[in-house]
Design a protein around this nucleic acid. Structure first.
Lengths: 250, 250
DNA sequence: TCATCTTACAGTCGAGTTGACACGAACTGA
DNA sequence: TCAGTTCGTGTCAACTCGACTGTAAGATGA
């Protein structure tokens, strides 16, 4: 029985939750004492809202959808404009559209989440209204952005267990210890180095480069590269899990 | 460097991919010979487009977002209006918004996916423009709806492995054989009844009702009920996987 | 120079799980 | 009563995980 209903006059916004292992230019002070990887945290850049609604509050970087661009294109563009960050991994997270989530007009936000490498965070814009925050110590955010960040964190933790996205946090080549630190940081628990090596090597996701990292004060570790370079940015793929023990977080 | 760009004047649509184990009123002819559960297929209701663009083609049920309703509310409403189906499980799938996906104006579609019970499909509208199709034997659909259905099927297969959504295909109480048939149909491979029983019982997701199903020509099977009734409809939860062997499909 | 420190990497072993299969139990229909 | 089918329990080999031990390879400092 189709009845006539009043159609929504909604504006379409795009926002992105960005995760990095290291903060960019402006950030809260890091404790300078040595920290275990499992005790480290992820960093998220936020922008301060300069106008109502939510003026003065921190919010996810984003903007309005352009007429000619794709949703993902809009996410990448607004990200670059607001924070100067170009992510290595960018995937749609969820679309938030509750009628009352923005006070004045109806806004439907398509939210993306992104992973960036350490080197990419340092290239971010120096702007007093852009700041990197500890993902576990965020201020109160504008709108429903707290909820969105929590959702993105859950997706990151889950997806780490059945995909190769951890590579997107790292450079072209990396050591197994660096890869393990990514897992330990995201999963918030230490992993046995020997067992981690066994399962990752058995997965076939990495190939040795034949080189080692020099300059370490100890035995030089081998350098690895992702077996499939396109793997890290794969979209909506349904893959075999990596290993059960990399899927359980406390 | 924020430059001014032309904002998108997009209309917001909501569509839903509905999965059922049995087709509703109007559907392609079923082969009446006995079929193994692993060889059975899932059924999806589609509606015929009565106007341009895509006139005459089959498409996902959906409609425009109403001014006062949530996204999920719009999905449920349009579903009921077009097909008469009220799903037991409804979850957001993905938002499609390529600039050229609809010819005349820009349309951004928030797509949901749903699971319905057999009894619910029979209550669907008798309308020559609504028809149930075999999910593996679909006609060419309007717009990018082929892509959307394929994506939804992948999500269903994956999610079956780490959640209790299989219950949403079944009635309040069911036998282990019926639950196993759901897995076999979705995963497209036979499962060992004894091993399936062991892992499902160990997961703690089911409780015995104390009753058995009578009227079968053989030994009466025990009836089970989901341990947590709210479990089936849980949204965006990140849970421990059920069992690895229920996650591998060929 | 060389012992010592730290990390890299290889290997072992017990506990627990999976997949394949065997077998008795329970019910119907001939 | 017996044949046929499914339900449900049990067994066992192969595999995986987590904890652990031991060796390799470099830097550092006495």
């Amino acid at each position: 029985m189709p009845r006539t209903i009043e159609l929504a006059e909604a504006r379409l916004a795009v926002s992105t939750v960005i995760f990095a292992r290291e903060p960019g230019v402006a950030h809260d002070e890091l404790p300078e004492q040595p920290v275990q990887p499992a005790d480290r945290s992820l960093w998220i850049p936020l922008v301060r809202r300069l106008r109502a609604p939510g003026k003065g509050r921190w919010a996810l970087p984003g903007g309005w959808l352009g007429a000619a661009e794709s949703l993902e294109g809009a996410a990448a563009r607004t990200l670059d404009e607001t924070t100067g960050v170009t992510p290595r991994y960018l995937e749609q997270l969820y679309t938030f559209g509750a009628p009352d989530r923005s006070p004045d007009e109806r806004v439907v936000s398509v939210v993306y989440w992104a992973l960036v490498r350490p080197e990419e965070t340092s290239g971010s814009i120096e702007d007093p209204n852009v700041r990197w925050f500890d993902a576990d110590d965020l201020p109160e955010l504008a709108f429903d952005h707290d909820e969105i960040v929590a959702y993105a964190l859950g997706r990151l933790r889950t997806k780490l267990g059945y995909s190769q996205i951890a590579h997107a946090f790292l450079d072209e080549t990396f050591t197994l210890a660096e890869l393990r630190e990514v897992y330990e940081t995201v999963m918030r628990r230490p992993l046995d180095p020997a067992n981690f090596r066994r399962t990752v090597e058995a997965s076939g996701a990495l190939v040795e480069t034949g080189e080692v990292r020099t300059g370490t004060p100890h035995r030089p570790p081998k350098l690895y590269r992702p077996a499939d370079p396109a793997e890290a940015g794969i979209q909506g793929a349904f893959r075999i899990p990596v290993a059960p023990h990399l899927r359980r977080h406390p």
